[in-house]
Amino acid sequence: MIGAVILGAGESRRMGTQKLLLEIKGRPMLEWVIDSFKKVVDEIVVVLGHRPELLIPLLRRLDVKWTVNVNYLDGMVTSVKEGLKMLKDFDAVFVALGDQPLVEVDFLKKAIEVWKNGAKVVCPVVKGKKGHPVLFDRSLFDEILGLGKDQFLRDVIHRHKEDLRTLESGEWAITDIDTPEGLEAFKWKF
């Protein structure tokens, strides 16, 4: 079984409001992300942190599981670990960003195929720059769950670079939306 941990714990400080609820073509940003993953994974867990009550009604409507990371201020890896705990019996798990609304379903399907062929980590890449979502094999879950406060997912990826496969993807893989200006620019491209 394949799962997805979607990170949505941040404060959206640069946006000035809960950015995952901002609408793009009439739907909240987070809904776009969830819809892409619903087409290819068996289970989704959205990790909440700052003001979770704002996002819970949307997640209930979409029938998606969530967990709250009370330590979200300690960094993104704490949210990854919180979500992964709920999916630790899965065979592989995507780690995705909640503010990346253009995740391509074709990429997700290709990543799963590459993983089935032996990769332990599958990552999108654009002009040499790695992006999200990243697919991790179950054999790496304990290592991820054991990461300390000053460690990052990229540390796990670097330690297993011989088992890393990258897939060329579109700009969407390195695009997240952090500011009102960024949202407006994005809407013109969408």
Rank of each mutant, 00 (worst) to 15 (best):
A9H: 14
K149C: 03
Q18K: 14
Q18E: 15
H158S: 13
F141R: 09
L102C: 12
K116Y: 08
A9W: 11
K85Y: 13
P28S: 06
L164R: 12
I144T: 10
G3S: 08
K19M: 12
K189G: 03
G10T: 09
F37T: 01
G118P: 05
L30Q: 08
H50S: 13
W32D: 01
D142A: 08
A185R: 05
P124M: 14
E162N: 12
T166Y: 15
G146K: 01
K39V: 01
G128N: 15
P52A: 04
N69W: 00
D163N: 13
D178N: 04
V64H: 03
V80C: 05
K81S: 10
T67S: 05
E31A: 11
V121T: 10
G8M: 07
V93K: 03
L30A: 14
F152Q: 04
V45R: 00
F136M: 10
V156T: 12
E171K: 08
V95C: 00
E53C: 02
S12T: 02
L135T: 02
W115M: 04
G10I: 04
R159F: 10
I34P: 02
L59F: 13
L140H: 13
L84N: 09
L62G: 06
K19C: 03
E168H: 07
L153E: 07
T175C: 07
A185S: 05
V5G: 08
R13M: 13
K88E: 13
L20G: 04
R165H: 05
D63E: 15
W32K: 07
N117Q: 10
V64N: 02
L147G: 07
L183A: 09
H158L: 15
Q100E: 12
W66K: 00
P28T: 03
L30F: 14
V125C: 14
K25C: 04
V70M: 13
P101E: 11
C123S: 15
K120Q: 10
K127T: 03
R165A: 08
K120M: 13
W115A: 07
I112W: 11
T78P: 01
H50K: 00
D137R: 11
L97P: 02
W172I: 06
K161E: 15
F90H: 02
D99K: 09
P180W: 01
D163Y: 13
K65T: 01
M15T: 06
L140I: 14
I6G: 03
E113G: 04
G8A: 15
I56W: 10
G49P: 06
E143S: 05
F107R: 06
